[in-house]
Every structure is written in C-alpha cells, then in structure tokens.
Design a protein around this nucleic acid. Structure first.
Lengths: 237, 237
DNA sequence: CCTATCAGGCGTACTAAGTACGCAAAACTG
DNA sequence: CAGTTTTGCGTACTTAGTACGCCTGATAGG
C-alpha cells in the first residue's frame, strides 16, 4: 500500500520499469550497442531489464522478431528525405543520416540483409526517397539506377566503416572474443606486409591511411556527390 | 585388405574421403550454399562429411575459425585485378567477379564485415586492386576514394541483390523459417501498398521493377562505370 | 467488499549447438 | 616392429532459445 503509481513510473532502466514491447526493443538496441550483437541473448536482455527470460516472450514473439524490431528501430533513426529541401540536398541528408544510424548501430548492418520482413519504417523511408528522386525530374529508369547505386553505396560504406571502426578501437572493447584484432590490424602493418609481397598495400597504408589527417569517412560525401552527379549526367546524355 | 589407396581416393563427398582442413571448409561452403548459413552447424557439417562432430576440431579451431576460412575461400573466388589489362577494364572485371562470388555465396556477405582477421586472400586481393588503380595514374588521395567507393558499392550491391534474390525465389527454399516472405514481397504489392500512403513506391514497383525486362543487376555495371568516370574526373578537376 | 477474469511475470524443463578432455586406433618413422 | 604423432571420436558440460502451464496482482461486476 505504500506504493502507488498510475502509469508513468520514474524511468529506471537497470531494474524495474514496466515491461513492454518498446522497452524490450529499446533495451535490446542499447545492449547490442554496448556489448555487441553476440552477447545479446534473451537471458542477458532479461537480466538488463531486471526480469526473467520467459517474461520477454509476452512482448516479443521470438528472438528473430526481437531482431526485426530492433532493426526497424534503427531504420527509424534515419531521417527520410525531406520534401522541403532541394532534391539533391534531401538525398544527401538522408544518406548521411542513414550512415550515422548505422555507425551508431553497426550490429544492424548484417541484419539489414538477412531480416526478410521489410518493416514499416523501411517502407516509409523508401517512399520518401523515391519522392525526392522523382522531384529531381529523372526518368524512371534513371531513378532506379540512382536508388540502387545510392543504397548500395550507403550500406557498403557503413559496412566498411564498421569493419575499420572495430579494427581501430584499440582500448575500447577488446575482450569480446579471444582474437585481439586491434594489434593485428593497427600495429603490425609491417609485420604482415613487410615482405615484397604487398608493396602497393604497404605504400598505401603508410603514406596515406596511417597519416594523421586521414579519415575514411571523408570518402562518404565524395561518393554521394559523385553518384548524384553521375546520375544527373546519365539522365542528360 | 581388399582396399588399397595411396593418397588420392575416389572423391565421394556424402560419406568418406579423407578429412582435412580444405575439405571441411569446402564442404562448409557447399552446405551454406545449399541450406543457408543458419543450418550450418558443426554437427550438420560433420554429418555431411560422414564424420562425428568432434572430428572436425582436428582441422578447424572453432566455428568462428571455420567461418573465417569459408569467407576466405569465397574471397579466393574473386579474380584479383589483372596486371595485363587496361586498368579500368581490370577493375571492372575484378568488381564483376567479386559480385558474382557473392551472388553464389550470399551468406558470406554479412560475414565479410564481422570476421576480423583479414585473411591471406583478402590481402592479395587488395594488393592487386591498388596496383591497378596506381597504374591508372591517379593521385594517392584519389586512389583512396576510388577504392572506398568501389568496394562500398560492390559490397552494398551484393547485399541488396542477396536480399532481392531471397525475396524473389518463390518456389525454392521456402521452408527455412516460419515466415514466407515470398508472397509478402512478390505477390502482395497492392495489398501492402494500395493505400495512399506509398504512391511513389507503388508506381515504381508496378511501372518499373515488376516489368518483364527489369533486372536489378543491370545497375551494377552502370554503377562501376559511373564511379570510375567520376573518380577520373575528380583527379582531373 | 467479494469474486470472476485476465494479463503479465515466471519456474521448470526440454532441445539444439559449441566444444573441453582424454582415449584409442591408424599412420608414419626410424 | 616399437615408438611417436595424427586422427577420429565418445562423453559430458555449457550456453541459449523457448514450449507449457502456474501464480499473482489488477480490474470489473455484483
């Protein structure tokens, strides 16, 4: 009798709070962000929520459904192309937003492909992008190419960025597996490559990729603009 | 005594043959191709090889190592950029080859990212590609962009192609999960999209994507050429 | 206020899957 | 042919997903 609450209890993730589908999905995303997808289990998620494993199944049909929901949540973080902006700018922003969502949630990248159900957010997203491309006055076949190229690039870029990110974060979470890729990728460049076997690779790494100002991410905007330009040119010629 | 063999026994995958790392990896790839990555377990692989689960561990350190090895095998199927050809043509072929390998082994795509160890084949591959780009006379910063864009595009494209492929294969392997995405994606376009909510999407699908001659794959070469052109232009201007 | 109903949380327990450990047969070596 | 190494594997433990059904607290009538 000492405790009375109507429906909005004070938020407290680590233990209590009311269980619900959204909370489960959101906490799933948090956990995957923090510890990686491998350590997201029904049991660990339940523990994080201060609940017992079987309780989650009241709000999520299965682990697959959980993952689907989490992916849709990530997609929801990507701003759809705005109808207000000039179409190229709208596309640019959409792509950058998508990329950032995937950088925040790199575990979602492999799932984007394998999860079959499109999910409501993904549809809204496609719709907005197609609308922007249509506003650009491109012919339909050209829209198709533009869309294929842009999305391929965004996803592929995010994939590589995630890969590099994992390789570069030396002091971060270096205990997930037995493999310590940190040293293998970052430090031992010369150890693996010093032979005459990979001269270009070694030169590229030492003279460019390992230089102070280098940022893989800088290629992103270059790529988007390049594709946008190329597609425009396609439509004309 | 009735059976005598020196080292090359008649090949017979389903049951006997000598166990070895290569055989295990190759059979793993076959199994993943046939039944999908989810149904590739140490136990199923052992059964396929006519062996018992623990036997595989003599030739593969762990399941993770198995997956690494399988991925490296897929990468080995991608022809490195040839040093004989004109550089753009060499790049084009390399990319097309990579794409085809990933179409043959779509399960490898999500793994490309998550597997941390580069693997010997990947290094050889990068080396050849950088060599070709260098032969093109591009400045180093431009090579970096070119490489980032090309690889992002290839991987991302393969990802989408795999996604679409799974959605389109109606009569193929439609029993993997409880979800039958075949109908959901292919047939019920109007069921999901008929509302006024997704006009562009519906128009795009019905007027273009569902037309007889449409092929998503056709965008691939367009994309590669577009990137190659764009990068060349970058280097000049 | 008392009871029927219902939904949410959970205990139990089964299954699938990775794999540590160490034995034993086979292959190889001297 | 004896010793050593390589290979295959039986056993068994662990982690993880989840089917099934109980229990409890909240809610709705009477």
């Amino acid at each position: 009798m000492a405790k009375r609450e109507q429906s909005e209890a004070p938020k407290q993730r680590p233990s209590k709070a009311k269980l619900s589908t959204v909370v489960v999905l959101a906490t799933g995303v948090e956990l995957a962000d923090r510890d990686g997808l491998e350590s997201l289990t029904i049991r660990s998620l339940a523990a994080e929520l201060g609940a017992k494993p079987m309780s989650l199944y009241r709000h999520v049909e299965s682990k697959d459904a959980l993952l689907d929901g989490m992916v849709d949540r990530v997609i929801a973080e990507m701003e759809p192309a705005s109808a207000e902006l000039e179409w190229r700018e709208a596309i640019r922003r959409r792509c950058e937003s998508a990329r950032q969502a995937l950088v925040r949630h790199p575990w979602a990248i492999p799932l984007l492909e394998s999860r079959s159900n499109p999910g409501p957010e993904l549809l809204r997203h496609h719709e907005a992008t197609l609308a922007a491309l249509t506003r650009g006055g491109l012919p339909l076949w050209c829209i198709a190419h533009a869309y294929a190229l842009l999305d391929s690039f965004v996803y592929g870029f995010a994939m590589q960025e995630a890969y590099l990110g994992a390789a570069q974060s030396i002091g971060d979470s270096a205990e997930s597996y037995g493999n310590s890729h940190a040293e293998d990728v970052a430090g031992s460049l010369e150890d693996v490559l010093d032979g005459q076997e990979f001269p270009h690779l070694l030169r590229f790494a030492s003279e460019h990729a390992m230089q102070p100002g280098y940022s893989f991410g800088a290629s992103f905007e270059v790529g988007i603009d390049l594709i946008l330009d190329g597609v425009t040119r396609l439509a004309e010629g």
